[in-house]
Write a protein that binds this DNA or RNA. Structure first.
Length: 288
DNA sequence: GCCCAGGAGTGTG
DNA sequence: CACACTCATGGG
């Protein structure tokens, strides 16, 4: 019996550095296999992605017909990254940083998955964030293939008790997730998808467990607002070290908005990546 | 063992 | 508005 139901396709994505893009910590459900191939969950599909020419070769393990569109969207293939980099490179500091990771791209996650993921990401390191998300998915997400589960939908997660969420290793974040499920629903999510960045950010900011930083992360990685600029500890260090700027969240955010404009999100990712790369703790993107 | 983690919520000065 | 404190746990 042939169990192969998957299918393969190619996508042109240029520039693209898979290791940087899927391993830098902007998204959490990808694992690098020994051969350099990246395996991850995209919606209700399992994908194996590897560099191939000026793009990627993708294997969809479920063979879902919509896989190609889903991965294209996920990798933001319609972003003209070269043009964005050129625009950002008018800043000398950023120009240097970009040249270090030419193929680092932003990804476009599912909005709900991104929201929950970054609420979980508060005061936790990346290995732990990944573990929490995998446990949450295998406990409450729909099974896709074997041990692989989709990220739990609002309805899926709605069924979880705080005790069960604590059991997933969420710690004090369990209550945030519980409150989030009570606050959010698909209609609200749909409304938020139509908002522009400033209002979206304010709306997200009102949700339990969502502060300035998480609101910007979700705006950027989930809702695809490229002008969003999340300020975390790494960005603080980078802005201090490279520009001599420091201060409140609002101060740093405003600085970035003025300096990087509509593509502040990409600027953030290059700054974030490089700042971690030269730290002894954050240098390696894989083994964490 | 010890320190820190892609912070947020709450209270106080 | 600026701080201080707490939050529950697991990686390194």
């Amino acid at each position: 019996m042939d169990l192969r139901t998957g299918r393969e396709f190619r996508l042109r994505v240029d520039p693209l550095d898979l290791d940087a893009t899927l391993g830098c910590g902007q998204t959490f459900r990808w694992e690098r296999e020994p051969d350099g191939c990246w395996r991850g969950v995209v919606g209700h599909d399992i994908c194996r992605v590897q560099a191939h020419g000026d793009g990627v070769l993708v294997e969809s393990l479920t063979g879902d017909a919509r896989s190609e569109e889903a991965v294209s969207r996920y990798l933001r293939i319609s972003d003209d990254v070269a043009a964005i980099q050129e625009a950002l490179s008018t800043d000398e500091v950023l120009s240097t940083g970009i040249s270090e990771v030419r193929g680092l791209r932003l990804v476009k996650m599912d909005e709900w998955e991104c929201l929950v993921s970054y609420v979980l990401a508060t005061y936790a390191n990346i290995p732990r964030i990944k573990r929490m998300i995998e446990t949450l998915s295998s406990s409450f997400g729909q099974r896709i293939l074997r041990d692989d589960h989709a990220f739990p939908s609002i309805d899926d997660l709605e069924k979880a008790t705080v005790e069960e969420l604590v059991g997933c290793g969420l710690g004090y974040r369990a209550q945030y997730v519980r409150d989030l499920c009570d606050t959010m629903d698909v209609n609200e999510l749909r409304r938020m998808k139509r908002m522009r960045y400033p209002r979206l950010r304010d709306c997200l900011r009102e949700l339990p467990g969502v502060g300035d930083k998480v609101a910007d992360c979700v705006s950027l990685f989930g809702f695809g607002k490229l002008e969003a600029f999340p300020v975390d500890v790494w960005i603080r260090r980078a802005l201090q070290r490279l520009y001599g700027v420091e201060g409140s969240y609002a101060t740093l955010h405003e600085f970035a908005a003025r300096k990087f404009g509509a593509y502040a999100g990409y600027a953030q990712e290059y700054l974030f990546y490089n700042e971690r790369a030269l730290s002894p703790k954050g240098g390696c993107v894989f083994s964490e």
